[in-house]
Design a protein around this nucleic acid. Sequence first.
RNA 1: CGGGCUGUAGUAUAUCGGUUGUACAAGUGCUUUGGGAGCAUUUAGGCUGGGUUCGACUCCCAGCAGCCCGACCA
Length: 419
Amino acid sequence: MRQSKLFTKTKKENPADEASKNAELLIRGGFIHKEMAGVYTYLPLGLRTLKKIEKIIREEMNAIGGQEVSMTALQDPEIWKKTGRWDDDVVDVWFKTKLKNDTELGLGCTHEEPITNMMTNFISSYRDLPMFAYQFQTKFRNELRAKAGILRGREFLMKDMYSFCKDEKEHDEFYEKSKVAYMNVYKRVGLGHITYIVFASGGMFSKYSHEFQTITSVGEDLIYLDENKGIAVNKEVLNDDVLTSLGLKRENLVEHKAIEVGNIFTYGKRYSEPLNLNFMNETGESNPVFMGAYGIGVSRLMGTVVEALSDDKGIIWPEEIAPFKVHLLALGDSEKVTAQANMIYEQLNEAGVEVLFDDRLENSAGEKFADADLLGMPYRAVVSERSITAGGIELKKRTEEKGKIVSLEELLKIVSEKN
RNA sequence: CGGGCUGUAGUAUAUCGGUUGUACAAGUGCUUUGGGAGCAUUUAGGCUGGGUUCGACUCCCAGCAGCCCGACCA
């Protein structure tokens, strides 16, 4: 991608109506655009990262047997009334609307009801189980207070997976697999070292649910971590009984602020019973399906990466989710530099390397460096009179202070490597 | 939903009860090109509605919008 053609531009100043680091950096860099409080458009650079995170999650969900679907945003109240969740006093984040003929509809804030209802068409025997379906879907939640940029919005992208099993044992096996898959996701987006599985409140059918919490200074949640055991507990369930049952001691726990980047639940029959999702077992008995749900806020995860992995100059994207792997800068407008940089750009493209090429002729070197730092691609490759005189291209990682001169062959080799 | 703060150009800000000033961005011309360049020139602004006043962007009221703290987060 040629930066001269990119319709977004970077901003030098922070937006006045945002206080969170993720929103400041993402807006300054032109990754997202704020439409209104809690509602953001994804621009070309931001969308590339969002799609890469989506791809990672998709791969990990497929790896544990997930089948992808795409459900509707518009919701039929009837099925929600069957579980008691149409009531605004029960679910207080509904956006509700109406058809022209006054029939009420909802905008989906989650999808337990419709997927459970839909599965009555497809699940009828133990032979159909277990089955796991997931989707990437824009969720609508009428939050009283949107805040912290894309960490808590009213419209946001979420991956939600639902598991359908014949009994608790089968469910538990998948539940454990999902934990591993989730941790793989966090590792791949660059947050593995600060993300923990946390015990949280469970609800009707299980003692606990499990949250995935990334430790940052701006989190909404408070967790208590035993670093030696690698076990953490959410403040909401922290009491002596819980600690005893988990084999934890209060004096070994350290309090951290954290961002919830995932949550998995055991539902049991909570939705299958009221919605009549039953299956016939081996002996001909009809039983409710045993369910679970598994959520990751895709856009929130992107915001969390920015919060956790940036410095005072800008974002530091991990390689697997950076919009581009290489940011190629041509300094100055001399024909020699322009020709050389264009040639390198074409070579990188041919080699299949994702490269953002700052080919703008009128911008100063300083501005290009500042942009490269703000936009945060993993590698910065500079072509200039100076680099050509020194015999090549100046290559620097975003995380490094100083670069080194490399030849085109070396550049291609280094940036083609899988890390 | 309770409390607080704030609405001036695309962005960020300043001043003022009496013709809204600046920077960045954008357009034009020239110079410049290793850490957000310089000169000249152009374009562009008082959230909405009421009230007070000779006169309101400024004061008052209401609405709307945004941010922050708290509550909430199935």
